Amino acid sequence: MASLHLAVLLLLAFTASSSASWCVCKDGNEASLQKALDYACGAGADCNPIKQTGPCYNPNTVRAHCNYAVNSYFQKKGQAPLACDFAGAATVSASDPSTTGCSYPASAR
């Protein structure tokens, strides 16, 4: 019986630690990435960190800013899979896209 409890606890610990996900922009043309970025920022994403004075402004590329914006939107929507589509411009990832000085949220905070 004790081994069953241990197995259940290990399974729960593994499940909890592997549930983090982020939304990132796919490689694509800048116009589609800019459209996803604009939509996310206009629909509730916290885009302050990618403003010129923000900690996630650099690298100053459409793709980097798109990544931050779509992820913020995705997190605010409770990580709903459809909240990370952006007309096919984005996808869910299990890899944390954070960089030095720029932390991507992994929850709605």
Rank of each mutant, 00 (worst) to 15 (best):
S95C: 10
L37T: 02
L12D: 11
L82I: 06
N48R: 11
Q34R: 10
G54R: 01
D46R: 03
F86D: 11
L4T: 12
L37I: 02
S107N: 09
R63S: 14
P105I: 01
G78D: 06
C25F: 02
L11E: 12
L12Q: 15
N58F: 13
S19M: 12
D38Q: 09
A83W: 09
I50Q: 04
A2V: 10
A13H: 13
S18N: 10
F86R: 05
C47K: 02
G101R: 01
A2G: 13
A90D: 11
A108M: 06
A13V: 14
A31Y: 08
C25W: 01
A94N: 15
A90V: 06
T15S: 15
C66T: 05
Y39I: 05
Y68V: 00
A87G: 11
L4Q: 11
L33D: 06
A13C: 12
F74A: 01
P55R: 01
L9Q: 13
V92A: 14
E30Q: 13
N60L: 06
P55C: 07
I50D: 04
H65E: 05
T91N: 12
A2D: 05
G54I: 00
H65M: 02
N71M: 07
Y68K: 00
N60E: 08
S3L: 13
D96L: 06
S21D: 14
A94H: 12
A94T: 15
P81T: 00
C102F: 07
D27P: 07
S32P: 03
T100D: 09
L10W: 08
K76I: 00
P49R: 00
T99Y: 05
A106I: 02
P97I: 02
A80F: 06
S93E: 14
L11H: 12
T91Y: 14
G101P: 08
W22A: 04
Y104N: 02
H5Q: 14
S72K: 02
G78Q: 04
A2T: 05
A94D: 15
G28F: 07
C25T: 03
A7P: 08
V24S: 12
A80E: 12
P105D: 04
C84Y: 05
P105R: 00
D38N: 11
A90F: 05
Y57L: 02
S19Y: 11
T53K: 09
L82Q: 12
L82D: 15
A36Q: 04
Q52L: 03
T61M: 07
V62N: 08
G78P: 04
G44A: 01
A87R: 14
T61E: 06
G28P: 00
W22P: 03
S19V: 11
C66H: 08
C84L: 06
Y57T: 00
T61R: 04
T15L: 13
C84S: 10
V92G: 12
K77P: 03
P97L: 07
G78N: 09
Y104M: 08
V24R: 05
S19F: 09
A36N: 03
A43F: 01
Q52N: 08
A89M: 06
A7I: 10
P105W: 01
P49I: 00
C41M: 00
A40T: 02
A2R: 14
A43R: 03
C66M: 08
Q34N: 10
T99D: 07
C41I: 00
G44P: 03
Y39R: 06
A36H: 03
D85M: 09
D38Y: 00
N58C: 03
N29I: 03
C66E: 08
A31K: 12
S93M: 09
T100M: 08
T99M: 13
